[in-house]
């Protein structure tokens, strides 16, 4: 069994078997990251290019570490992220990279669909590290891995995803993956931040956080992008934090043993109270650790001869 795909652009088309294969493969790499010598020669001689049009130290470093631990050569490209970076540049940049024999390109871009556009234009494998509001597949996969590592089964699992769902690529990827695996997904946030028709993707929508948390086993908090305040999506940060911030009292409403997740970076005191972020139920740092193992697994599975 293997991943018979040239690219990883989205979790929507992945089968349950493919998702399970990625998670199982990540197990082996979790073991490698626990060793003294955290390196295996599996991708020796391959070139992985991190093409990040949007700045992101966290994700980029995670991919870089993953590639290096597989003994691949890593190149980091961060084309100037001026607000007018056009797709023309994307295609031309990509062709240049391809001419340098890049085996795998990891792309982060502010336009939804950029990864798909790139993948159609180059022979290299393309991994979507976040395209606009659309998807962030590797983040959702490491979220799944973290849940699985905690011994939770996905079938029937009650997961609440809280925050600006409409503008969140992490939310979208997780909705696709979790519903596919049989989890019950609850989306929580103000109506202005719920995408149109999202119930049709198999999720339940709640506007009241307290109500939504009953019986929930996984609480996934999304980052509130503070710069969005100007666009009339919510009146003030104060009101948002009061209605949708995860406090210690709210965590008690959920299942005992519930875990708290967050893709980072966190706004302490806004969407998540500091004591919750630092509590035992928080698996935020585990997510980061698992990110490297999961990305190693994905790079490994995508590195077959093309």
């Amino acid at each position: 069994m293997s991943l018979k795909r040239k690219d990883l652009l989205s979790l929507a088309p992945l089968s349950v078997d493919e998702i399970r294969l990625i998670l199982e493969t990540a197990d082996s790499f979790k073991e490698v990251t626990g060793r003294e010598i955290k390196k295996v020669p599996a991708l020796r001689g391959r070139t992985v290019v991190n093409l990040f049009f949007e700045p992101s130290t966290r994700t980029r470093t995670s991919f870089e570490l993953a590639a290096k631990r597989l003994s691949a050569d890593v190149i980091n490209f961060s084309p100037s992220s001026s607000s007018v970076v056009k797709g023309e540049t994307l295609l031309d940049t990509a062709r240049n990279i391809e001419a340098m024999q890049a085996d795998i390109i990891v792309l982060r871009h502010s336009s939804a669909g950029a990864a798909e556009t790139l993948a159609c234009g180059v022979k290299s494998s393309v991994i979507n590290a976040g395209d606009g509001w659309h998807e962030h597949p590797t983040q959702a996969l490491l979220d799944l891995y973290t849940i699985r590592e905690r011994g939770m089964a996905f079938e029937g699992l009650r997961v609440a995803i809280v925050g600006d769902v409409a503008h969140s690529r992490v939310a979208r990827s997780n909705i696709y993956a979790l519903t596919k695996l049989g989890a019950e997904v609850r989306l929580v946030g103000p109506p202005t931040m719920m995408p149109h028709g999202v119930e049709k993707l198999g999720a339940r929508v709640f506007y009241d956080l307290d109500e939504s948390l009953e019986g929930v086993q996984v609480i996934m908090m999304l980052r509130l992008q503070l710069e969005r305040q100007g666009r009339a999506l919510f009146p003030t940060i104060r009101e948002y934090a009061r209605l949708y911030g995860l406090t210690a009292e709210r965590v008690k409403i959920a299942d005992p043993g519930a875990i708290v997740m967050h893709p980072g970076p966190i706004n302490r005191g806004v969407e998540i109270a500091p004591e919750v972020a630092d509590s035992l139920s928080s698996v935020i740092l585990e997510q980061v650790a698992n990110g490297v193992a999961v990305r190693m697994g994905i790079l490994y599975l995508m590195s077959g001869a093309n």
């Binding site: 069994m1 293997s2 991943l3 018979k4 294969l21 199982e24 493969t25 197990d27 082996s28 073991e31 490698v32 295996v40 020669p41 599996a42 991708l43 020796r44 001689g45 391959r46 490994y300 599975l301 590195s303 077959g304 001869a305």
Partner: peptide, 23 residues
């Protein structure tokens, strides 16, 4: 010991072989 990651033919194979755990 699972030796898959150390095989000398990984770059030649179309599909990567399944990994098993090293313990």
């Amino acid at each position: 010991l699972d030796i898959t990651l150390y095989r000398d033919d990984l770059s030649l194979r179309k599909e990567q072989p399944k990994l098993r755990k090293t313990s």
